[in-house]
Design a binder for these strands. Structure first.
Lengths: 230, 230
DNA sequence: CATTAATCGGAGGATTTTCTTCCACTTACT
DNA sequence: AGTAAGTGGAAGAAAATCCTCCGATTAATG
C-alpha cells in the first residue's frame, strides 16, 4: 500500500462493476448536462446511466464532484484527439478537420461551456488537462495558418465556438443519433462554405434534408436520402 | 356578445399598457423557452417580461396558449424577413445572407424547434404563417441555386439547421449580447468556409477571439479586438 | 381633472419535482 | 465458499413551480 497518490486517491482499485458504473455515470452525466444544463436532475443522470440513485451518491458525494469528473474526462478526450490529429494527419488542414470530427463525437465542446462556471478550472488535474488540450489545439491552428490552408482571420475562438454550436444536440424531439449525423455533415459544410468551389463540388456527408424531410422528421431517425456521413 | 370569431377575438382593442405587456411577455417567453426549453418556469418568464405572474396568466390562460403566441410571432417575423430579402437584395446570394442575419436577430430558428412538439403547427394562423415563411425561404434557396452561387448540395434542411445552431445562445454565462455578435460573425464564416478564398480574404465581422480572450471572457462583454459585427 | 372600468402584480396554499440518507440484498474477488 | 465492497430504491425533507384571488393602480373618456 504505497500506490495511493496524485489525483484520485483510491487505495484499492475499484471493483469491476464499480468501475463500469463509474464510467457509465460520467457518460450519462455528460449527456444530461448537455441537454438540461448544469442544474439537471441527478435522478435523471442515474436513470440514464442505469444505476440506482444511491450508487451515484456513493461515487460522487455531491453535484460538483460529478461535474469535475465530467469536465476532466472531456478535457482528456479533447487533448488526446488533438494530439492524435497532430501526429497522424498528413497535413495541417486535415489535422484540423479530423480534430473537429473527433471532438464532435465526444461532445467535448458541448459540455465544457455548460460546466465552466461551476467548476474551478485552474487547479489540479483539470488545469493540466485543459492546458494540454488547449496547446495541442492551438498547435493545429497555427500549423494550418502556416500551411496557408486556414484563413488568417479564423481564430482559436472561432474554432472553439463553432465546435460548441455544432456539438450541441438540436433542440426538440430530434433523435440524438440524427442530430449527430447532421453535425458531421455541417462540419463539412463549414469547412468549405456555402459557395461553389472553383475546383468543383466537394462531397458533403450525411443526410440531405429537404423541407419535407424536415417536417416529416421529428423523432424517428431520417431515412437518409444520401450517403453515409463523415 | 356575439362578435367572438376567428383567431384573436377581442371586442375592444387592448388598453395601451395591456398591449405593451402582451408584447413583452411574448418576447420574454421566446428567450426563456430558448434558454430553458419548453418546460421553462412561467414565473421566470413573467419576471423577465417585468410583469406580475397574474398578468401573464390573465393574458395567456395556459402554457400552450403562450407557446402558440410565441410560435406565431416567430413565424411571422421569419416570413417577413424572407420576403424582404427576396424583394430587396441585389442578387440571390445576398438575399440568402441577409436573410440569415435577419433571422438570427429574431431568434426564430432558436425557438421554433423547441416548441415544435408542443404546438399544433397544422391549423389556423400558425399553419398559414409557416407556409408563408417556408415558401419564401425555399424561393431564396432555389434562386441562389439557379444563380449558381449556392452549392447544389446545400439543401433547405442545411440552411434551416445551421440557422438553429447559429441562433441558439451559447451555453454558460456568456452574455447574450456577445453570443449574438459572435453568431453574426459565424454566419460570415459559414458563408465562405474555413479555407482561404482564391479571390483573397473576405472580411469577417465581429470579435476575433483568441484563446486568452476566450478564457478571460466569461460573463462581461468582450472588449472586441476587432471591427464591428455584421 | 374626475370617474370608472380595465388591468396590474404578488402573496400564498396546493402540487409536483428533486435531493439525500439509509439499509437489506447482491456481487466480485481471493 | 467467505466476505468486504458494492448496489438500488423507498421515503422523509426541502425546494421549485403552478395557479388563483383580490386590493391597488392606471388608461381612457367626458
Amino acid at each position: 500500500m504505497m500506490a495511493a497518490s496524485a489525483s484520485s486517491d483510491r487505495i484499492r482499485p475499484l471493483r469491476a462493476d464499480a468501475r463500469r458504473n463509474h464510467r457509465q455515470i460520467v457518460l450519462a452525466a455528460r449527456d444530461v448536462f448537455v441537454e438540461r444544463g448544469p442544474g439537471a436532475s441527478l435522478d435523471e443522470i442515474a436513470r440514464r446511466a442505469k444505476v440506482g440513485i444511491g450508487t451515484l451518491y456513493r461515487r460522487f458525494t455531491d453535484r460538483n464532484v460529478l461535474m469535475r469528473a465530467v469536465v476532466l474526462d472531456a478535457l482528456e478526450r479533447s487533448a488526446e484527439s488533438a494530439e492524435r490529429a497532430n501526429d497522424e494527419a498528413p497535413n495541417a488542414f486535415e489535422a484540423l478537420t479530423s480534430y473537429l470530427h473527433a471532438n464532435l463525437e465526444d461532445r467535448v465542446a458541448a459540455v465544457i461551456p455548460v460546466l465552466l462556471d461551476q467548476v474551478d478550472m485552474d487547479r489540479g488535474d483539470i488545469a493540466a488537462a485543459r492546458d494540454r488540450a488547449a496547446s495541442a489545439t492551438q498547435r493545429i491552428i497555427d500549423a494550418a495558418h502556416a500551411e496557408g490552408t486556414l484563413r488568417e482571420q479564423v481564430t482559436f475562438g472561432d474554432i472553439g465556438t463553432m465546435l460548441v454550436r455544432l456539438s450541441r444536440p438540436l433542440p426538440g424531439d430530434i433523435s440524438l443519433e440524427l442530430s449527430e449525423r447532421l453535425a458531421h455533415r455541417h462540419v463539412d459544410l463549414l469547412v468549405d462554405g456555402l459557395r461553389p468551389r472553383p475546383a468543383g463540388e466537394l462531397p458533403i456527408g450525411g443526410p440531405r434534408l429537404s423541407l419535407e424531410d424536415l417536417r416529416r422528421l421529428r423523432d424517428r431517425a431520417a431515412d437518409e436520402p444520401d450517403g453515409g456521413s463523415r
